[in-house]
């Protein structure tokens, strides 16, 4: 089976600026990939090339085995762009019917509204909905054709906390069966973390990290076990635990930094140390993101000095 998305040595230049610089990656069918990066990293440029909205200066893109502009690709593609003004004077149900008419096997309209959590708004004029409601409507439209590939550029922009949670829940249930591939960008890293199998980290138009969440987090560190040490627990006992990188004490509160928090916890239990209130962190994507993008800056700075 061919890759759902394949990006091969893609470069996009605007004059002298390399917005995207020799990027290559493949997305296997059924996976959920988060494309992350600081502002100006080239995410939107890359997405617009994957969608066929702009042509790479060099390299090429295939989606679902086709060129992005091929009808065969677009029939199986669902998209949310970052900034879209919906057409004026059109009702929600009309927009849904309109989008459904583009595709050979559309999902039922009620199902779409329900998935997007906007069942009650079918008769309303689309542009008069709140920003978050419009965004959810755009999600309903993106999945109208029962797509096997979804590309969502900042899908939760404009949504409040509650809508965001509902949105991720329905997105998760939509892609859960493994038949669909999802590529998304978002500024909310904890949300990317809650849904993605894989993260591609973009910076300055280049891929600076690409891997599973666990791999990315391992690269960046910030994994630890914290606990409250009881009166019988000594400092030595803690420092002799396996895989300990550093221990920080603040009163009875102990934080053990390690690459293998599971093994540390297991050892604490097996050795029956006098400790309680365990907290285990496998590292947050946000920390990994900051660490990796900053690491990259330092490398670049050094390069400049040399």
């Amino acid at each position: 089976m061919s890759a759902a998305i394949s990006v091969e040595h893609v470069t996009k230049r605007f004059g002298a600026v390399h917005a995207v610089d020799d990027v290559s990656f493949e997305v296997e069918p059924g996976t959920i990939v988060a494309l992350l990066g600081p502002n100006g990293a080239g995410k939107t440029t890359l997405i617009s090339m994957i969608l066929g909205l702009s042509e790479p200066t060099q390299g090429f893109v295939r989606i679902l085995g086709h060129r992005p502009r091929d009808r065969a690709a677009r029939e199986r593609l669902g998209v949310m762009l970052q900034h879209v003004t919906l057409p004026q004077s059109v009702k929600v149900k009309e927009l849904v019917a309109w989008f459904r008419s583009f595709y050979p096997h559309p999902l039922p309209a009620e199902h779409l509204l329900q998935m997007a959590g906007i069942e009650g708004l079918a008769e309303r004029e689309a542009v008069k909905l709140s920003g978050g409601e419009q965004r959810r409507l755009q999600f309903a439209l993106a999945i109208a054709g029962d797509p096997s590939l979804l590309l969502l550029d900042e899908p939760t922009t404009g949504m409040d906390v509650e809508s965001r949670r509902a949105f991720w829940d329905s997105l998760r249930s939509f892609v859960r069966d493994g038949r669909r591939t999802l590529l998304l960008t978002t500024h909310h890293l904890e949300e990317a973390e809650s849904i993605a199998d894989r993260v591609v980290l973009l910076k300055g138009g280049r891929v600076i990290a690409d891997g599973s969440l666990a791999e990315i987090k391992r690269q960046a560190g910030n994994r630890y076990v914290s606990l409250i040490a009881g009166p019988r627990c000594t400092k030595d006992e803690i420092e002799q635990l396996p895989h300990v990188k550093r221990v920080r004490f603040s009163g009875r509160h102990v934080r053990i930094e390690t690459d293998h928090p599971d093994d540390v916890l297991r050892a604490i239990i097996l050795r029956d140390l006098d400790a309680s209130s365990f907290e285990v962190s496998q590292g947050a994507l946000e920390d990994a993101f900051v660490a990796l993008t900053e690491l990259e800056d330092r490398v670049e700075d050094r390069g400049a000095v040399r």
């Binding site: 617009s48 909205l53 593609l77 003004t85």
Partner: peptide, 13 residues
């Protein structure tokens, strides 16, 4: 200019 045409280009219309 406000995204709609681009979006439509990604559909089979």
């Amino acid at each position: 200019t406000q995204g709609w045409t681009s979006w439509m280009l990604t559909t089979p219309r």
